[in-house]
Amino acid sequence: MNNEPMRIVLADDDEGDRTIFKDALEELKIKTKVHTVNDGVELMEYLALEDTPLPYMLFLDLNMPLKGGMQCLKEIKKIPRLREVAIAIYSTSSSEENITETFHSGANVYIKKPDDFKVLKDVLDKVVRAAHIYREPPFNMANFLFKI
């Protein structure tokens, strides 16, 4: 890993989740720089900005007001510039429909939000480290759903 901090973008409407996410990343050994947005609309606007650097990884919550994660995912995948960005779905839900649809829509990994801080750190550590693996869209669903 380079010394350059990795840019992580999180789209989540829940403030608590955002705070926790940031704290968890901060405590990891790997250096990251986090930018959070509140909903899908904000996310797309942020990504559309000229001076927004290309994120290393994007964490998408599905249930967001105005524009949900699913919609964002589909839109992002249409933007050529952002096609390389690894997208992790970061959601409370684990319904089959969501998993299937996000898989088919091109998300790289599906993470169910853990409720333990340590677990969250662990997950983020692994996912971020292995993001380059996740850059390639998964070829089967078994690898899609992230399991510790």
Partner: peptide
């Protein structure tokens, strides 16, 4: 359930953080 889960998760998360 989803809406209930979210604040619940937050509570858990933060409570454990504080305790820690």
């Amino acid at each position: 359930s989803h809406d209930l889960q979210e604040p619940l998760r937050n509570i858990k998360m933060f409570a454990s953080r504080v305790a820690e």
